[in-house]
């Protein structure tokens, strides 16, 4: 019974999201497309939080694994390989590359780890932009022209893309819930809070960190597969370090290390970014830049809402605490 009660909230939420397209407010293709994008980034942010919020690893290279998912799928499908096979290969690529690069990057910890992951991801960004062998299409990107199954093409089928994105979020959240409640998940929390102590207890923090890094890379690649189907192509932007920084912002705004915080942050950030871009031209000065507004909000959130949306603290304590630290 208790187990059932615990599942009630996620199942209820899922039911709401599954039935959203049946409401008239949401069933226009444009809205569904935006919602699908929000869901993909919700899943990505949640997957990134496995590193940042759960394991305490600040990776600046998450875009690489997402881009692998996007580009491997797009490239393989252009070669005539069916979607299902291309998707599996893309996710495997994400897992293998994450395992290999993680094994090197995790030799250093703390901030150095962040810089190394950033450098590795930069290679991905360079490769994508330089268009080796005409594979990635360079700055122009790749369009998914053929091989997409019928039920995912056409304006009328946008709803299927939405459900696909929803399925992705559900998978990510389910995997995370499973990992976090497992003994390994508790070790990850231990690594985050005090890696040396985990070592003293006879466990190897390195292998646990590598597992989390690999799993997170695989989830990101999976997100890439869904993303390429929703957007209908790949562009250099998905490999950029800005994308990783945006994921970081999403997680911090939502609440790192919480159950739904990162996903909410991801969806909300994507939605706001999109909406702000829409109204940007009518706003004066720096407000016309969505990233200016979101960056400022992010900075304020770090000072005043350290736990993100999931832990909004009483406002009245916030300013005195800041000034106490300044003086």
């Amino acid at each position: 019974m208790k187990r059932f009660m615990k599942l009630l909230l996620p199942l209820g939420l899922m039911a709401v999201f599954v039935s959203l397209p049946f409401g008239s407010a949401f069933n226009s293709p444009g809205t569904l497309n935006l919602l699908a994008l929000c869901l993909v980034f919700a899943g990505l942010a949640a997957g990134y939080d496995l590193l940042f919020g759960r394991t305490g690893l600040l990776s600046f290279g998450h875009a690489l694994y997402f881009a692998l998912g996007v580009y491997v799928t797009a490239i393989l499908m252009r070669q005539g390989i069916p979607l299902a096979l291309a998707a599996v290969i893309a996710v495997l690529c994400g897992v293998v590359v994450a395992a290999a690069l993680g094994a090197i990057a995790l030799r250093v910890d703390g901030i150095a780890f962040s810089m190394v992951t950033l450098a590795f991801a930069q290679v991905g960004a360079i490769l994508v932009a330089r268009d080796p062998g005409g594979l990635t299409g360079g700055e122009e990107g790749l369009a998914l022209s053929k091989g997409v199954p019928d039920f995912l093409t056409g304006v009328a089928n946008t709803v299927n893309l939405y459900w696909l994105a929803l399925a992705y979020v559900v998978i990510v959240l389910a995997v995370l819930a499973r990992v976090v409640s497992s003994p390994a998940g508790r070790v990850l929390a231990g690594v985050r809070d005090d890696a040396r102590r985990v070592g003293v207890l006879g466990l190897n923090p390195y292998s646990f960190k590598l597992t989390a890094f690999t799993l997170s890379g695989g989830l990101a690649a999976m997100g890439g597969v869904v993303y390429v189907l929703i957007v209908g192509g790949a562009s250099t932007h998905v490999a950029s370090s800005e994308l990783t920084l945006m994921l970081l912002v999403m997680v911090v705004l939502g609440g790192p290390g919480t159950k739904y915080g990162p996903a909410i942050g991801g969806a909300l950030f994507t939605f706001l970014d999109y909406q702000l871009t829409g109204v940007a031209d009518s706003l004066p000065g720096p407000l016309s830049q969505p990233l200016f507004i979101l960056g400022t909000v992010f900075i304020l959130a770090v000072y005043f809402f350290p736990g993100g949306l999931a832990h909004v603290t009483a406002l009245k304590n916030v300013l005195p605490r800041y000034f106490r630290r300044v003086s």
Partner: peptide, 18 residues
């Protein structure tokens, strides 16, 4: 680190706006 990340985002956007 997070604060400087936010600052670099907002700052570059500000430079772009100006």
């Amino acid at each position: 680190v997070l604060v400087t990340v936010g600052l670099s985002m907002a700052g570059v956007a500000l430079l772009q706006a100006v």
